[in-house]
Design a protein around this nucleic acid. Structure first.
Length: 258
DNA sequence: ATGTCACAGTCCCTGTGA
């Protein structure tokens, strides 16, 4: 089973690229972030034409998360069930696996109130995962807006004092992982930077100025079933790309005859 | 470091967020 996560930075602007990519890579399940649209305009029919059932938690101009699956989509849940007004988390069960698509707040700056919201949101995610059904596998994927370690940054010294690399954010991410989920790309590729995001400005992509902030966190038992996990850098190239590349993984799971 | 992109409203430019 192939599972991917991708921050598309507006599904309206990105739909031609997303459609092309779904046809090229044929993931079984894809987690999307920053759809930036309401549920009313989400392209459910276009996904269906490609063989995907989809669930969307949209807000409008900002945020918005979705899950598209061609292996079933059941028990959809939106948000943490608290009073968070922003559309940043959606969950569903696909082929028996609990799948969660997350868009963690950016934080903006260490002294901005949004940074405290980011830390609180990560704490809420930790609590949400701590209370999960342990009889099912879980995949928590998305844009975490945290580079877990210095290897995940093109230049750690240049980023000192910025969001995405601060110790409180990294500690909050480790607390999420301590509920029993593991950063799959890092597990399979301990020494590769594997950036997932490059700023649109300054030719950052071609200069290699990237961060690894998009993650697939999976339960330990499922991690052991992973055949591959990687970043699809090619999706960051070409016409009108998102500023994020998809992260993909293949699990020896749920294949008929295999 | 800040050379871009996408959005909405102020609506063909500007402010905001990333």
């Amino acid at each position: 089973m192939i599972v991917a996560t991708w921050n598309v930075n507006s599904l309206r602007a990105r739909w031609p690229r997303v459609r092309q990519w779904l046809t090229l890579r044929s993931p079984d399940v894809v987690l999307l972030q920053e759809t930036k649209m309401t549920d009313a305009v989400f392209p459910f029919d276009e996904f269906r034409e490609l063989g995907y059932e989809a669930a969307h938690y949209g807000q409008g101009q900002w945020n918005g998360v979705a899950i598209a699956s061609r292996v079933g989509l059941d028990d959809v849940a939106r948000g943490f069930g608290d009073d968070d007004p922003e559309a940043r988390l959606i969950a569903a069960t696909c082929a028996g696996v609990r799948v969660v698509s997350c868009y963690v707040p950016n934080g903006r700056a260490l002294d901005d109130p949004h940074y405290q919201y980011k830390l609180a949101w990560l704490a809420a995610l930790r609590d949400y995962l701590a209370g999960r059904d342990r009889t099912r596998h879980v995949i928590v994927g998305g844009d975490f807006n945290v580079a877990p370690a210095d290897i995940d940054c093109y230049d750690p010294a240049a980023l000192a004092g910025s969001t995405h690399v601060s110790e409180p954010e990294r500690a909050a991410l480790r607390a999420v992982e301590a509920t029993g989920v593991e950063d799959l790309v890092r597990r399979l590729h301990p020494d590769e930077p594997s950036f997932t995001w490059w700023d649109y400005r300054n030719g950052a992509f071609h200069r290699g100025w990237g961060l690894r902030i998009d993650l697939l966190l999976v339960d330990t038992a499922l991690a052991a079933l992973a055949r591959t996990a990687s970043v699809d850098r090619d999706a960051r190239k070409g016409e009108k790309p998102s500023d994020h590349a998809p992260v993909m993984a293949d699990f020896a799971l749920g294949e008929s005859g295999g």
